[in-house]
Design a protein around this nucleic acid. Structure first.
Length: 270
DNA sequence: ATAATAACCTGAGGGC
DNA sequence: TGCCCTCAGGTTATTA
């Protein structure tokens, strides 16, 4: 169940393992992911990986002028197991490398995806209408304010939608709004320019801090080597219903917005 | 056009 | 042990 930090941590590890390696074989055991896995994915066989990039929560493996696009959905995980390890029932595809190792994708809920293109991946439907990368310079308070000004939905929902800013999922949406002192219930067009500047700063700080700690493990998420993400220990409100707010001592509440849990403190978030 | 909501899946955990 | 319920780091398709 990865958000931007968890995908970035996964992406960096995959990059280290794959760049420069040849792809010997693509084995798809179950093509029924979020979208059907296209048969063209087999055309990666015999190519050499040039780069591994991330856009939003998608991992882009560029090889031989083609691109494999991987999304981890809620329960997707990449690992490099012993090639002799028999695949489990949720191990949906492997990339076998020219050094004898394999990269294996596991995803019990199958909300993830494996897509393919030989064109510009940014023109793919899933990537073409995404919002700003939160860690890139273009994501500023002015930008956020201008985009939120047209949103009548709650700011938490707007942050998670992905057309304004990408990578902020359910955990970090609660965390960044708490850090910025803004209620998740506030309408997007009621967030001031000054508050947007604060919010942008908190989004950057929290996402970068989480990346540095290997992401957030609450239940399923694990890094490529299987270890947990330590940012879970830094969460201030997520999963802390009825605990005291570390900033003002108020009672942390859990509400539901857009069918997702939101955690916040009504004492210090307005 | 925008915003709410239903849907896609499996598994873990709690109450009875 | 088993059944039924709720919940889970996401996104898309449908409805209003």
């Amino acid at each position: 169940m990865p958000e931007l930090p968890e995908v970035e941590v996964t992406c960096r590890c995959v990059r280290r393992e794959l760049v420069g390696r040849g792809i010997k074989r693509v084995t798809v055991r179950n093509p029924h992911l979020r979208f059907p896995v296209p048969p063209e994915i087999a055309r990666l066989e015999g190519t050499r990986v040039e780069a591994v990039d991330r856009r939003a929560k998608y991992i882009l493996i560029r090889s031989g002028g083609q691109t494999a696009v991987i999304h981890l959905g809620m329960t997707g995980h990449l690992s490099f197991p012993d090639p002799a390890e028999p695949p489990g029932k949720h191990d949906h595809f492997d990339l076998a490398l020219d050094d004898g190792r394999i990269m294996r994708y596991r995803d019990p809920r199958r909300f993830g995806a494996l897509l393919w293109t030989d064109g510009d991946p940014m023109q793919m439907r899933i990537l073409s209408s995404l919002g700003a990368e939160p860690l890139e310079p273009g994501f500023t308070g002015e930008y956020l304010h201008q985009r939120l000004a047209r949103s009548r939905s709650p700011v938490k929902t707007a942050l998670m939608k992905g057309d304004i800013v990408v990578g902020v999922g359910n955990i970090y949406a609660s965390e960044v709004l708490h850090a910025a002192g803004i209620s998740p219930l506030r309408r997007g067009d009621q967030v001031s320019l000054e508050e947007c500047g604060i919010l942008v700063g908190e989004i950057r700080r929290i996402l970068e801090d989480s990346i540095a700690r290997g992401g957030t493990t609450i239940r399923n998420y694990a890094q490529v080597d299987g270890s947990r993400g330590a940012f879970a220990d830094c969460l201030k409100v997520y999963g802390r219903e009825n605990e005291n707010c570390p900033r003002c001592g108020g009672r942390i509440q859990r509400i539901v917005q857009g069918q997702r849990s939101t955690f916040y403190c009504s004492g210090c978030q307005r």
